[in-house]
Design a protein around this nucleic acid. Sequence first.
DNA 1: GTCTATAAATGGATAGAC
DNA 2: GTCTATCCATTTATAGAC
Lengths: 197, 197
Amino acid sequence: MKPAEPSNLTRDQRRERTRQVIVDAAWQLSRERGLTGWGLRDLGAQVGMRAPSLYVYFASKNALYDEMYAQGYRELRAVYESLRTGDLGAEAQVRTGARMFFQFAVADSARLQLLFLRVIPSFVPSATSYALASEVLAELSQSLRAAGVIDPAALDIWTAMLTGLATQQVSNDPGGSRWADVVDRTVDILLAGTRLA
Amino acid sequence: MKPAEPSNLTRDQRRERTRQVIVDAAWQLSRERGLTGWGLRDLGAQVGMRAPSLYVYFASKNALYDEMYAQGYRELRAVYESLRTGDLGAEAQVRTGARMFFQFAVADSARLQLLFLRVIPSFVPSATSYALASEVLAELSQSLRAAGVIDPAALDIWTAMLTGLATQQVSNDPGGSRWADVVDRTVDILLAGTRLA
DNA sequence: GTCTATAAATGGATAGAC
DNA sequence: GTCTATCCATTTATAGAC
């Protein structure tokens, strides 16, 4: 018996807190060594545990990836919610949203790969987690509709553009701003080209 | 002594041929199991060798990736060369080039990841291989300039768009045509937006 | 809930016989 | 040029003591 944590919490709360500590450590390792560049031993060491103890909190490494995936999309959803709560007009919302998405995506290339590319062959997001991703996409769709971009094909162009800019930035100019510098201009071009299609 | 190959070839020719067989097998495994989903044992088995024998032809697994990378860009360069040789006008060349790039990229998602994304943390293309990539980019740049897209920032928008469309297609609609269907429209939009910037 | 011990496999890579 | 044998590290995951 050595929880080492404030124990005026329920068992479930303590468990959830530990899960979060593990997920945070996994993100940190992913940022440092890449999404697949660490093992459960390393992760355990990071949180002061041996690898087998992690199985108390996650059924497998892929289950852990799934939680990271879900959490990543929850963070992105929060970004869009903060946007919607603001008092920006429809077009400004699209403009700011694009900048924020880009910033979100390039801030963590491991997260970019997990959320938007299919980099781990064995990992497929669970139905629940994938639903979160769809929710965020719906948010983007909504935002674009409000600005006059109404057809579904145009939405696909926007997602390609946004992920493309971010991917190019982290792949071909990490730490720089080559693609960051063209985000606004690209938004202008797409707005002009996809409105009232 | 058991070459099992027609021996009216020089030693270097036989060596080069075997290297090619290995690279082809590596591509096949990458397509089937993902870029990192196979080991040297599997690769050896695929070409009728034990893993250690592969070291006669490649210094390391990353050296093999490097050859795959170079070969991928040589194939892409060939695509653009066939385009330049045709009798298309500048704008038609951009339009056809975009379609061909998209087709090339989605035809093999492992190749897409190796050539355009940074998916294997330990792999960095050699200077020689990277020069090939630059050559192909210059080709694209040339093609766009001829069509009136002259500023470097616009080129960055185009590469983001092209890779973004392909990545979305293989990540979110593999086997489908959701993003394939918007390539032409996207080219129109970008041509309208980046010409004579 | 955490540990040790270990399974069972796989990883890339090297030595040295033939 | 290919092999066997092997190294040494590492992987995810499980069993069972505490």
